[in-house]
Design a protein around this nucleic acid. Structure first.
Length: 214
DNA sequence: ACCCAGGTGGCCC
DNA sequence: GGGCCACATGGG
């Protein structure tokens, strides 16, 4: 039974890969292998801003942060202590901007105070880090796993609405709880961050294509 | 004028 | 433990 799932999931992965090739072309930064510390921080910031937002608007918000030279955890932390409202205005294009400004401040504070930045966090155990992230305001399971997988190189599979639709479409399981779905993918794939990253990216690309074709 | 986009937290019962 | 609602912008 498990083995059937294994073959099916790996088969779907291969199918997507032959269709899309390396998704690094579209998910340029997120699927990139070797990221600088600043790029990792940009992924974390993007993970917050991308919540329920169109990615183009997220890019715009990030560009505005870059222009103001506060597209780093340290700068966001320092800046938002006194100028949270201005931070909110900068990220406005991504929507829910006041909430997200608060979330950005909280997550920056978390990494600066607990780990002195992302470098130390990368060395921390995945389970510990995941629990701590989930305890932060604005970080739910999907955002936590985005950060762990795409910014900190931790092997966790990201589940989102596209993944749920994908699972339903291919009848992989009836149980759509986050933990169950994550387990399903992780147990049936090699524990490899590149596979996890690319697979999730391709599921999203596929989901968008479906939207366009219906 | 709607509907959606790489969610989350806070209520309510 | 599920079912709502607020949060808000820009693009189709």
């Amino acid at each position: 039974m498990k083995k059937q799932e294994t073959n099916k999931i790996q088969e779907l992965y291969k199918q997507l890969y032959s269709k899309y090739g390396n998704p690094e072309g579209q998910w340029k930064l997120w699927c990139k292998r070797q990221k600088t510390l600043l790029e990792r921080e940009e992924v974390i910031i993007g993970a917050i801003l991308a919540q329920r937002a169109n990615w183009k608007n997220v890019d715009l918000a990030i560009d505005r942060l870059k222009q103001s030279k506060i597209c780093s955890l340290r700068n966001i932390y320092d800046f938002s202590k006194t100028n949270k409202n201005e931070l909110a205005q900068l990220v406005r294009p991504s929507g829910f901007y006041q909430q997200k400004a608060n979330y950005l401040f909280e997550i920056s504070k978390f990494f600066i105070q607990n780990y002195k930045g992302v470098k130390e966090a990368i060395a921390a155990p995945t389970d510990k880090l995941r629990k701590e992230l989930l305890a932060q305001k604005g970080i739910g399971p999907e955002t936590a796993d985005d950060i762990l997988l795409y910014a900190l190189d931790k092997p966790v599979f990201v589940i989102d609405e596209y993944t749920r639709r994908f699972v339903k479409k291919h009848n992989l399981t009836q149980d759509l709880f986050y933990a169950r779905l994550q387990e399903l993918f992780q147990k049936n794939l090699p524990q490899d961050i590149k596979v996890y990253r690319d697979f999730h990216a391709m599921i999203v690309l596929e989901g968008k294509d479906m939207n366009l074709n219906t």
